[in-house]
C-alpha cells in the first residue's frame, strides 16, 4: 500500500532567463515501510521535489506547482494552510542537510523537540518532556536527562543531526523525508546516522524518502531508487537492480564514476566520468536532455523526447535505448 503517491508533479520557476521547469511531470509512490531513494546531481530537481511535497517552496507568483501529491485520500498540493500545518511534523516530517544551522541557537534542545509534540498532541508539559528524553535516548544520545537541557552549541554535528531526527520523529510520522541527511557529516558519522535511520524506520514502521547525490549510501538503505536528471525521473527500479544492471546511460555513467575496490594484482583503473554538464534548465534541448552527454545518443535522441518505458517488471527507464545491462 502506498503511503504517498506523487502524480505528474511539476514545479516551474519564472526567472529572468525564462521559465525553468525544475521538476517535470514526476510520478512515483512510496510504499508503507519502505525507503525510496532519489538520486541525482545538483540541479536535478530532487530537493525541489521534496520541498514541493512539503509545500515549502516560496509562494510568490513566480513559482508554479502542478500535479498531485496524495497522502491517503488527500491532495497536499491544494490543501488549506491550517490543514497543511497539521500534516507537517505529524504525518510527514523532514530532516535537513545542515545540522549546524537546523537548530535554534537560543533554545534548549529539549524545548525544540517538545515544540512539535505540544503542537500536534494534547499532552501536558511533563509528558512532552518525558517524551523528549525518550526520543533523545532513542536516537542514542548518551545521558539524555542532562542533554535535554543543553543548548545546541554544546553538541557536535553528528549529535545535532540526531537531535534533528528526534524532532522529526517526535509525533511518529508515517513518512520521513531526509534531504541529504549525511552530506555535511564525517564519513564515520554518516554510517552511524544512516544505520540509526534504518533502525528507527523499522521499529516505527515508517516510510522514508531519502534524497542524496551519493549512490554509495543507497545500496544499504533503500529498497527502491529513482534517478533524476534535469528535473525528470530517468530511471526507477529496485536498488539492487539499478546498481547491478542500470538501464539508463546516465545511471551507468553515475555508477562508472564510483571508485571500485581493486582486484588483487590489477592496477588502479581510471574512473570514468560523464562528459559535459547538466544543461541549463531554461534552455533544455528538444530531444532527450541527456543526449549531449550520452555516448549512445543517436539522431532520434536529439529530436524526440523519450517516454518512460518498462524495461522489465517494475522497472522504468526514460531512454530510447533502455536495456538492462550488467556493468
Amino acid at each position: 500500500m502506498a503511503v504517498l503517491k506523487v502524480e505528474d508533479l511539476s514545479v516551474q520557476f519564472r526567472t529572468a532567463q525564462g521559465v525553468v521547469r525544475a521538476v517535470d511531470r514526476v510520478s512515483f509512490e512510496i510504499r508503507a515501510g519502505e525507503t525510496l531513494a532519489v538520486v541525482g546531481e545538483s540541479g536535478s530537481g530532487k530537493s525541489v521535489t521534496a520541498l514541493a511535497i512539503m509545500r515549502l517552496l516560496p509562494r510568490h507568483g513566480s513559482t508554479r506547482v502542478s500535479g498531485r501529491v496524495m497522502l491517503g485520500e488527500r491532495d497536499l498540493v491544494g490543501l488549506a494552510d491550517a490543514e497543511m500545518q497539521r500534516v507537517r511534523g505529524n504525518q510527514i516530517s523532514m530532516v535537513f542537510q545542515e545540522p549546524m544551522t537546523s537548530l535554534n541557537p537560543l533554545m534548549r534542545i529539549g524545548e525544540q523537540i517538545e515544540e512539535g509534540i505540544r503542537r500536534h498532541q494534547n499532552v501536558s508539559a511533563a509528558v512532552s518532556r518525558r517524551r523528549a528524553v525518550e526520543l533523545l535516548d532513542q536516537v542514542r544520545i548518551a545521558d539524555p536527562h542532562r542533554r535535554v537541557d543543553e543548548f545546541p552549541h554544546t553538541l557536535s554535528g553528528g549529535m545535532r543531526q540526531r537531535v534533528m531526527i528526534a524532532m522529526a520523529l517526535a509525533c511518529e510520522p508515517k513518512l520521513l523525508i531526509a534531504d541529504e541527511p549525511t552530506t555535511a557529516l564525517d564519513v564515520t558519522v554518516q554510517a552511524q546516522i544512516l544505520e540509526l535511520l534504518a533502525t528507527l524506520r523499522k521499529t516505527m514502521n515508517m516510510s522514508m524518502l531519502l534524497i542524496t547525490h551519493d549512490l554509495s549510501i543507497v545500496a544499504d538503505t533503500a529498497e527502491r531508487t529513482l534517478v533524476m536528471y534535469a528535473g525528470r525521473i530517468v530511471e526507477a527500479a529496485a536498488t539492487g537492480e539499478i546498481l547491478a544492471r542500470p538501464a539508463h546511460p546516465y545511471t551507468r555513467g553515475l555508477l562508472g564514476s564510483l571508485p571500485k575496490p581493486r582486484a588483487a594484482g590489477r592496477s588502479r583503473d581510471r574512473l570514468t566520468e560523464i562528459p559535459g554538464a547538466v544543461p541549463p534548465l531554461h534552455a533544455l534541448p528538444a530531444g532527450c536532455s541527456f543526449a549531449e552527454r550520452c555516448q549512445r545518443a543517436d539522431a532520434v535522441c536529439r529530436t524526440d523526447r523519450p517516454e518512460a518505458r518498462t524495461v522489465t517488471h517494475d522497472r522504468l527507464a526514460v531512454c530510447h535505448f533502455a536495456v538492462a545491462e550488467a556493468i
Partner: peptide, 22 residues
Amino acid sequence: SQDFVLACVVMGMPSWRIIVSQ
C-alpha cells in the same frame, strides 16, 4: 531562510509563532 526556521515550518508551526518565538 535558516534551516531551523524551515525545521519549524516542517514541524507544522504557524507563521506568527515562528516570528514571535523563534
